[in-house]
């Protein structure tokens, strides 16, 4: 009996002499001092719209090597910090968001390193001025109409309209351009080409991209808040 008690006491002593509770590697407070990893930042501040693994969210996928290789790093940081268009919030603390500037840089660099590794930049510039709207109408009819329907809404496309005035009021010209350039491969989309079933089985040229954006932008109603 005595021996058993001594043994128990010994076990308790050994257990208690540990630096920390048995089920914890370290104290929480020590962990809090370490800055969050870029993936933790992504999970907290981006995953809601851009998808848990960087794809298949309602907003543009970030796990897109071509996109990350084409858009300059500074531009990415700027968008994350100050927001863009209608539905990308400003995350920087200086803009009323929740994330310190250093974390934003780490977030973008983490994405670039992890998801942008093997990316090749597109030949077409990521941004540019609007093209010619009337030429854009023709390009739209050739390249976009099968999936996105006629611009006047008479024939619905298989993938839903991009000329709906309410849709256009919610996306900026830059967002339209990015959508055409980089597409939504995660959703099975084929932008930017080649376009199976089309007469011209090729990707859009730079001027054609600018023309289609101009065409769609011209159809955006000028009421309400501007994108």
């Amino acid at each position: 009996m005595m021996r058993a008690a001594c043994l128990l006491a010994g076990v308790a002593l050994i257990a208690a002499c540990g630096e920390v509770p048995l089920n914890k590697a370290g104290r929480d407070d020590a962990a809090a001092a370490v800055p969050p990893t870029w993936s933790a930042l992504y999970a907290t501040h981006c995953a809601g719209c851009h998808g848990a693994d960087g794809t298949l969210g309602p907003a543009r996928p970030m796990r897109d090597a071509a996109y990350l290789a084409t858009v300059p790093r500074n531009r990415l940081i700027e968008v994350v910090a100050a927001g863009q268009g209608v539905l990308m919030p400003a995350l920087a603390q200086s803009k009323g968001g929740a994330v310190p500037d250093a974390d934003l840089v780490r977030l973008v660099d983490g994405m670039l390193a992890e998801w942008g590794k093997s990316g090749k930049a597109l030949a077409v510039a990521w941004s540019g001025p609007l093209g010619d709207a009337s030429r854009g109408a023709t390009t739209y009819a050739t390249f976009c109409q099968t999936c996105h329907g006629a611009a006047d809404g008479r024939t619905p496309g298989t993938r839903g309209s991009v000329s709906d005035p309410n849709y256009l009021r919610l996306v900026s010209d830059q967002a339209l351009r990015s959508a055409i350039l980089f597409g939504r491969a995660d959703l099975g989309g084929t932008c930017n080409g080649p376009y199976p079933g089309q007469a011209t089985n090729r990707a859009l040229r730079a001027d054609e991209v600018s023309d289609v954006v101009a065409f769609l932008a011209a159809r955006r109603p000028s009421i309400g808040r501007k994108p």
Binding site: A43, T44, H45, C46, A47, G48, C49, G51, A52, L56, G57, P58, A59, L87, P89, H148, R159, G160, S161, V162, D164, N166, Y167, L170, V171, L187
Partner: peptide, 23 residues
């Protein structure tokens, strides 16, 4: 910002509905 829109929904959305999911 941290709870993703369900993937099964996102896959079937039109562009306008997609913007609605963003809203």
């Amino acid at each position: 910002t941290a709870t993703p829109a369900p993937v099964s929904l996102v896959k079937r959305l039109t562009p306008l509905q997609m913007q609605g999911a963003l809203v």
